[in-house]
Amino acid sequence: MSELECANVMSDSDVLTLLEGRIATYALLTRLYRKEVDEPLLSEMRAMRFPVNTGNADMDAGYRLFHTYLSNAWERTLTELAIDYTRVFLGNGVNAYSAAYPFESVHTSSKRLLMQDARDEILALYRANDIITRSSWKVGEDHISLELEFMQVIGERMLVARQKQREDEAARLLAVQYGFLNDHLANWTPMLFAEMHKFAKTDFYRALAFLSAGFIATDFDILSEWIEASDDEHHDGRSVPDPPFSGE
């Protein structure tokens, strides 16, 4: 049974486990997009277990590629990954098509420019949710790493709300996450992932593209189901199969 199929027939503890899993995956993806892999991260990833069957073909492909790549790691793996990170996300060209630029503005503006409308909207969303970027962050706030971290932070808040049985707050945070995925992450990242496949020379960053695509799609499906369940209960008063939260 896939994660999505499971989501509708879950106990409270299963829901909390799933929320924790989402947070952990968002945190991992955040880190992988933020900067090059370093020794502690590589060691951590080599100690991970990757699920064989998640119910999503992209995630499975990503985990399998990660597994193969990490099983072949040697002393120059970190250097190879640093080079590939630069090639994939920074590029060395002078036009807007020289890398898989990890900014929403690039993929949603006609001239592929940084700091466009998407960035302003993202910044407003962060502020509306009492989130600001650290002073050390010097590039656009619509970087995929920050958008993933936003999902992680809201996910953590949702987990706490759920643990403290604050259902209204949990439902509100669910809506925030769903809206953010729907309007932003799930909207533009497929273009980024396609470009990552084009520029990546290591299976590691191909795996990252697969995993990210699969995970975001799966998470969007899960949140959609939960939102739908919430709405149904809210409007009809009908009982639906184990919705994780219900806003009153």
């Binding site: 990833m45 277990r49 990757f50 699920p51 399998r64 597994h67 072949n72």
Partner: peptide, 27 residues
């Protein structure tokens, strides 16, 4: 360049299968 690693799978209590990263032969 890349060794095709035969997946080493483990199962936890719920019988979910996992791929376990293997240590490649050192040169």
């Amino acid at each position: 360049e890349t060794v095709a690693v035969e997946p080493l799978t483990q199962q936890d209590g719920s019988e979910t299968e996992y791929l376990v990263v293997q240590t490649s032969a050192q040169g």
